[in-house]
Design a protein around this nucleic acid. Structure first.
Lengths: 347, 347
DNA sequence: TTGTAAGCGTTATCAC
DNA sequence: GTGATAACGCTTACAA
């Protein structure tokens, strides 16, 4: 077999995938023309174009997006940084983000941090090394402000779900946590409750504080607060402890998320109390299990999908023009889902 | 201000991020040396190295990973193709995949298809355009064999969770669906059940068929089969129809996934039947809601995380060496979780 | 110990 | 309507 001076063989015996040069050589045109046939960026003689296309098919040529990106100075890929994709809230958020990215022809790298700072650092590094064009940041915990500070304003970042203290000048999409708390307060008040136990999330989270504030404001009754950590176990522990210490000081429990509400529910049931007969319970988030539980949980529906979608769409609006997004806030409405876990207080 | 012949300014007024040339010029060395200082690929004089490092810091230089990838011929990014990230099964699988990718320094693009063929095509295109080094494929529905065929064997792909008919020569990690069905069959038989209703998934899915086969084989009683689609509504519909048509022909229901089991549960409750008093119900998957439901659902725990992790780790083992993975099967063990929805049949 | 130059595979600019 | 050539920003022979 004679050597192949151009490194091009027509059959599939070639290991290296065909490049634009291979196509050009085989079609007897320049790489420039091949490029334009494929991109339509300038008119090409129909005969030439047809010939090029046929070679493209024969060689199975697909442009290397890497080279394209290098030339373009952008990758059409963004990152989504979240703490835990197996948490349904973040999964919904991710779905919204992915949809928005897909709509604009962007890919999305899943940056699951497991609350690990090193891991978060590594992923944020992708933006510095310009492998991604931007980042949707939903850390879900009091975020590492220092790390973000270095990036925001210089790189395209959008905050989703959770604000970052001290980073007011940001693009952010979040649910209306305060209104959610208020809806619960009004609901319980209307049912006739006057004394409630509020299980909050970590104090460092603005969303957590907002939920509690909205609730206290609208409930206008006596509220005992206990600080949890958004995990089922903490809801269980806090309620169980109060029961041991001489009974619940209230007729209703508002947990700042569904997981803690489930923990509370279990603790109450274990103590022989019935829900909502003896105590009403309300959650926040409306995760899938909420409607499936027994009794079905009254809770605040968070538009997780929309939060992800909005943050991403906003981010891309600027990224696609090569701009760093300005400060801008999008507060999304929440909805109270009244189910079986709330009722008027026992007399 | 005098013009800057190298296009380099020490302050942050420069728009364009610093390149390796900028660093080299500012440090008075060649780009080669800068490269080697950073990569450690060849010894560099300590003084020179220190000078380079200081310039790197001052300019905030971060190597463009794009250029690096182009040169290396690989991106250190893979794709994970799934139908629906908001489904907890795939979210868990994604978590496992992400963990495995992260461990080996790979990034992962989330390819959420929503069962949409065009979307799947677009994402598979990333592998042809070599933007990703490989793909973990978990389509969750009878996959588009023709599309995959064109890729498998030529590109690095691993199948997760679901086999693809006709593509036996693949790298695949899957749960032991057949054993899961068997465990349920044995469990119900031991409880004393002799007549069961089996709600299967789509016939085209091998996993679905395997679950049913395992069950029928181990149950050794009378089994009525109805075909569903893995959605809650179909479980509800199938059971409700049988109830209307004159009652259930059985004392136990085995649904091929938890969602359908919940649908069945609801239909039974609506008809005034108690679970497990009148009818036992078993699911498959062990999604989060399973243990939270009332009654807690007896179900088969699928190692979704491990499926994702295993498939990805296997894929990367070959990808990282630039090889296309060989045919190889990894069957992961499942576990029966006996909860409150099963009991001996009423006499 | 260091530098020069040739790639990697595109697209943009400019010229014909 | 088409083509040379120079970028994009890096790594790596090959040379000194």
């Amino acid at each position: 077999m004679t050597p192949d001076p151009y490194g091009v063989r027509p059959d599939s015996a070639v290991r290296r995938p065909a490049s634009i040069k291979d196509v050009a050589a085989a079609a007897g045109v320049s790489p420039t023309t091949v490029s334009h046939v494929l991109s339509g960026n300038r008119p090409v003689n129909e005969q030439t174009a047809a010939r090029v296309r046929s070679v493209v098919n024969r060689l199975g040529y697909v442009p290397a997006s890497l080279a394209r990106s290098l030339q373009a100075g952008a990758t059409s890929v963004i990152g989504l940084l979240i703490p835990d994709i197996s948490n349904t809230f973040f999964a919904e958020l991710a779905k919204g983000a992915e949809d928005a990215a897909h709509d604009l022809g962007y890919g999305m790298i899943l940056c699951n941090t497991e609350f690990d700072a090193d891991r978060e650092d590594r992923y944020l590094g992708m933006i510095r090394s310009r492998f991604i064009d931007g980042m949707v940041y939903a850390s879900g915990s009091p975020p590492s402000r220092r790390r973000l500070e270095a990036l925001m304003g210089k790189f395209p970042i959008a905050l989703a779900d959770e604000e970052v203290e001290g980073l007011e000048g940001a693009l952010i999409a979040t649910a209306d946590h305060e209104a959610g708390g208020r809806l619960v307060g009004e609901h319980l008040r209307q049912l006739g409750h006057r004394r409630a136990l509020m299980l909050t999330g970590p104090r460092a989270l603005k969303s957590s504080v907002a939920r509690a504030q909205g609730f206290v404001r609208a409930f206008r009754g006596e509220v005992v607060e206990r600080v949890g950590d958004f995990k089922e176990a903490s809801g269980h522990r806090l309620v169980a402890r109060l029961l041991e210490e001489g009974g619940l000081p209230c007729t209703a429990v508002f947990a700042a998320n569904d997981l803690m509400a489930f923990g509370a529910l279990t603790a109450l049931t274990e103590a022989g109390l019935s829900v909502p007969g003896d105590v009403s319970v309300v959650g926040f988030d409306d995760i899938r299990a909420a409607s499936l539980a027994h009794p079905p949980l009254t809770t605040v529906h968070q538009p997780a999908y929309d939060v992800g979608r909005t943050a991403t769409a906003q981010l891309l609006q600027y990224v696609s023009r090569g701009e760093v997004p300005p400060a801008s806030r999008h507060t999304l409405p929440v909805e109270l889902k009244v189910r079986g876990s709330t009722a008027p207080p026992a007399r």
